[in-house]
Structures are given as structure tokens and as C-alpha cells.
Simulated scan of single mutants.
Amino acid sequence: MSYELTNHGYLVNLEDWNEHVAKELAEKEGAELSEKSWDIINYLRDEYLNNNGNQPNERNMVKHFKKIWTDLDKVDTKSLYNLFPTGPAKQAGKIAGLPETKRKGGY
């Protein structure tokens, strides 16, 4: 399957995304996809597709995953950056096939 990327490495067409594409994008990004990485990717896709194009920032992601990841002692921005070192909102969003966010930072 072929797909087109922007100059910054984001999918041009949201419909081209699937798990295989996500794995290829993650490889280009140097990110390993764990179960928690997929939790973030699926959360971002769900928010974008089912919540009027919402792209949560890191603070909102931490709030959400504190409720979900009960197996971790602490869920904070560091735990998100451990999964997506160049920025959980932007890097995970790119791997999730979402458009590039125009937001400046995590907060």
C-alpha cells in the first residue's frame, strides 16, 4: 500500500492510515510501539475522529491515562515521553495518521 506524507512526515490522507502504516511511521520516527503506545495512538485517533477534530495536549493526555493505566504508580508527562521521546502529542499524532497540530507546546 502506498501513502503520501507531508514535508514534516504526516499522512496527507487520514483514510490511508492502518496499523501497518502506523508501524512504518513509528519505525521512521525511531519509536517502539508497546501496548501503552497503542493506547495513546488509539486515544488520539478516537479524539480526533469522534470529538470534532480534537487533538489533546499532553496535560489532557496525562489526565486521561491516569484513569486508564492503573498498573503504573505514577502517570505524568515523563511516562508519556518515555513512549514518544520527541513529544507524545506530536509524535504519537503523526504515527496515528493525524494532521500536524498547530499547537506550540504540551501545555
Rank of each mutant, 00 (worst) to 15 (best):
E19C: 06
W38M: 08
L80Y: 04
L72P: 00
N18I: 07
N51A: 09
M61L: 15
D71I: 12
A89E: 07
G9Y: 08
P99F: 12
I95V: 11
E47W: 02
K94W: 07
Y48N: 04
D16M: 02
I95M: 11
K66V: 01
G93W: 10
E58D: 14
G106R: 09
N57D: 15
K66C: 00
Y10W: 10
L5N: 02
R59Y: 12
E24M: 14
N54V: 06
G93F: 10
D16A: 14
V12L: 12
N54G: 06
K63N: 13
G105A: 10
K23W: 11
I41W: 08
K94Q: 10
Y3L: 00
N60K: 08
L72M: 09
K78Y: 09
Q55D: 01
E32S: 07
Y81I: 00
A22K: 11
G105L: 12
N18R: 01
G9R: 04
A31Q: 02
D73A: 10
E24F: 04
L83C: 01
A96N: 05
H8A: 11
P88W: 04
G97I: 03
P99W: 07
A31S: 08
E15V: 05
V75Y: 05
D73E: 14
A22R: 15
I40L: 10
L49F: 09
E19H: 08
K66Y: 00
E47C: 07
A96T: 00
W38I: 07
L98W: 11
P56Y: 07
G97F: 05
H8I: 02
N57I: 13
Y43F: 14
W69Y: 13
G97A: 06
E15D: 11
I40G: 02
N13V: 03
V62S: 07
G106I: 06
Q55F: 12
V21M: 12
D16N: 13
G87R: 00
I40V: 15
N50C: 04
L98R: 11
K78Q: 14
W17G: 03
E19S: 10
F84R: 00
G53N: 10
H8D: 14
S79G: 02
I95R: 15
N50G: 04
N54R: 15
I41G: 02
K63H: 11
H20F: 09
K102W: 14
D76T: 13
N50M: 04
P56W: 04
N57T: 06
R45V: 03
R59D: 00
F84G: 00
T6G: 04
E58P: 03
L11I: 10
E35S: 14
A22V: 05
Y10K: 01
Y107P: 03
L11M: 08
E58L: 09
Q55A: 03
W69D: 13
D73T: 12
K28P: 08
G87C: 05
K28G: 01
N7Q: 14
M1D: 09
D73K: 15
L83N: 02
E4L: 15
G106L: 10
Y81P: 00
K28M: 11
D46Q: 09
H20V: 15
L72V: 01
N50K: 14
P99I: 07
E47K: 05
K36I: 08
N13F: 14
F84L: 00
A26S: 05
K66L: 01
G97E: 04
E100H: 12
E4W: 08
F65R: 05
A26Y: 04
K94V: 05
Y43A: 13
S37T: 05
T101E: 01
W17E: 07
S2G: 10
R59A: 05
E32V: 06
L98F: 06
